[in-house]
Amino acid sequence: MNQMIEKVRHIRRIQYLNSFNPIFAVLIAFLVSGLMVLLSGGSPIEAYIAIARGAFGSMSSIMSTIRFTLPLLLLAIAFTMCNKCGYFNIGQEGQMYASALTITWVQISFGNSLPVPILFLLMLVCGAVVGGLVSLLPAYLKLKFGVNEIVMGILLNYTILRLSDFLLQNTALGKPHANTSMSVFYIPSIPTPVLAVIACLIVIVYAFIEKKTIPGYRLRMVGSNPIFAQFSGLNKTKIVLVVAMLSGVLASLTSTGELVGIYKCFYYNYADGLGFSAMTAALIGKQSVVGMLFGALLLGALQSGAIGLSVSASASPEIVILVRGFVMLFGTISVLQYFMHERRKTKEIS
């Protein structure tokens, strides 16, 4: 019995230490990237100060950090809920482009005939339906025929990206005579603080549903052991499909928020790398809501800090991408647990 208690304590200790893991990952990532800067003749300390200033130095830089954090947070949640039930949703960028095309179409078709609130609502709904369907397709094919969802997701991303390039340049969706592929401007507009409030609401609602409700319980069960969930009578197929669909809807809401709230029109390639960054945020946050919040904030701060870095000349702003990569790489190993394990082993032998 004593042994059992000891064992439980040990597991607790590891869990406790694990919650600090992302912090260590970030520290190591900064250290390695700093070394890189140093080796190439720059000054890492100056670079990091510039990043920090760019991310938190002034009111406007804080606003910019928040602005970059929001889409990452929402997409991280969309990715996590799929990942929890065994669907690796790598196709978020495709979902975002697809719904961006849809809302642009709504703008073209109804922009002049509908009052703005209804137009906006129509954009939200149509975008959500299309985003949901694009996310549903790989999930359905995976469940029905066993098609690899990662391959499907990558293919969908490329296809939709190229399709939007074509449509923006050759149809009425695009702005005629623009130098780059971009769409016509949207009439509805939402200010960034409103976006922030909506995003926070979505996060809170998600956290509540996941922890306290029956649908959340079912999602968790399908995630922790799909065979057991099915054996107990849960309809695994339905749950996975619904979650995939909701995740697509969330991606599309993110896309609508970005386009209507910030860019005011749809640029070709506007979400480049956003899906990857969101995955990074989700994975370093170990897929818990609080963890993802910190993950998204960190990446958002880095992105906004990159702007600060480009103003100062201490290192090139590309270092930020490098830091992001290292954070992801080190965030996935349980650094502490690894060392703890090694120590325990040597102690036992001696």
Binding site: T213, I214, Y217, M221, N225, F228, A229, S232, L234
Partner: peptide
């Protein structure tokens, strides 16, 4: 037979979570 990463409670109610004893308007 079981979902090892889940808790005892979660394992016991799986499949009957909609029973009025465990469910209050969709809340656990």
């Amino acid at each position: 037979g079981l979902s090892i990463p889940s808790t005892l409670d979660e394992n016991l109610i799986c499949g009957i979570e909609e029973n009025g004893k465990f469910n209050h308007n969709g809340l656990l």
